[in-house]
């Protein structure tokens, strides 16, 4: 085998070896997460305005413990430490915003640890959890400290007619309706982040606009609310109107930030409609017939459990396979 002298020696190159495609969209997990955190800023601002700046400690505690739990578990499991991707911080933040003002800091910390530990890491970490971690933490707290978590603070700028109870509780136990306007602004009793519908909407619409949140879930939830809430209202006008349902409690917060969590919502477009409508139905039933005034958390958790099934049965038909699929 003689060497071919005429052929010049191989030129050295210093390049990346990867598979196609060689172009990528600019989104990354951490960018998405931090963007959602940014979208929560109006809600945080509303919370601090209405309930006092000291509420920031609840938020800080929740975030610190969430990130801390994430890191410790990753250290124990000898996995890559990913606190900077923002997902744990986001979970902590979301949890904090669902808590009532002046909630005890130690309980907040417990909630954060549970949210990350039982809600997320036990399933294998980011991307594998079945249930929304923040809601797992919140549901855990609700079950563990039911009294404390339903003790509300009267907002700072409250007019006299506003009580410290949430609009939903006021309706449920005393049949008092709250006007839409204070509920939209947030000048009513409620959890930190969810009281101001406007602040929530600003963040949510931002997320929809940049394409992080798929519009189908919030829209189907709102439509579902008009459908089911309206149905119950028409049957019995004693029941609240759909508008009240939408603006009261954490419905909008849930629709924009909780139900739309990528990991725990369906991945198919059809599935998102089923998911959103399902949440609304369960929510209306809980609010009207259940023992608790609010049920957004439960209805989302409940539907989270159905997501694998929804994904399975709304699987898109493979291109060109229409006839074959149906025959089977």
């Amino acid at each position: 085998m003689e060497t071919t002298t005429t052929i010049e020696p191989k030129q050295k190159v210093y390049f990346d070896l990867t598979t196609s495609p060689h172009l990528h969209s600019k989104w990354t997990t951490s960018k998405v997460m931090w963007f959602v955190v940014a979208a929560l800023v109006p809600s945080i601002a509303a919370a601090l305005t209405f309930f006092g700046w000291t509420q920031i400690f609840i938020i800080i505690t929740a975030v610190v413990f969430a990130v801390g739990t994430e890191v410790s578990i990753q250290v124990i499991r000898k996995k890559q430490i990913t606190w900077f991707d923002g997902s744990a911080a986001l979970t902590g933040l979301l949890l904090a915003l669902t808590l009532p003002p002046n909630f005890s800091l130690s309980a907040t910390a417990i909630g954060s640890v549970v949210a990350i530990g039982l809600g997320k890491q036990i399933f294998g970490g980011l991307g594998y959890n079945i249930f929304n971690p923040a809601l797992v933490g919140r549901a855990f707290l609700q079950a563990a400290f039911p009294v404390q978590i339903t003790t509300w603070l009267k907002p700072n700028f409250a007019v006299d007619s506003v009580t410290s109870a949430t609009p939903l509780a006021a309706f449920k136990f005393d049949k008092i309706f709250t006007d839409t306007v204070p509920m939209a602004i947030g000048n009513v009793g409620g959890s930190l982040g969810e009281t101001s519908a406007i602040a929530v909407l600003i963040g949510g619409i931002l997320l929809i606009a940049v394409g992080i949140v798929n519009w189908r879930i919030p829209l189907s939830m709102i439509l579902g609310m008009f459908l089911f809430g309206g149905m119950f209202w028409l049957i019995n006008p004693q029941n609240p109107t759909p508008i009240f349902h939408i603006f009261a409690g954490s419905f909008l917060f849930g629709a924009m930030f909780m139900a739309t969590d990528w990991v725990t919502s369906p991945i198919t477009n059809k599935g998102m409609w089923v998911f959103g409508l399902g949440i609304s139905l369960v929510l209306v039933v809980i609010r009207i017939y259940g023992g608790l005034p609010e049920g957004v958390m439960y209805s989302i958790l409940f539907m989270n459990g159905f997501v694998p099934l929804i994904n399975r049965y709304t699987r898109p038909t493979i291109f060109g396979a229409v006839k074959e699929e149906k025959k089977k």
Partner: peptide, 13 residues
Amino acid sequence: VAENPETPCLRCG
């Protein structure tokens, strides 16, 4: 190329 490190699937769809 916008090559970024791989992270777990978020099931974003």
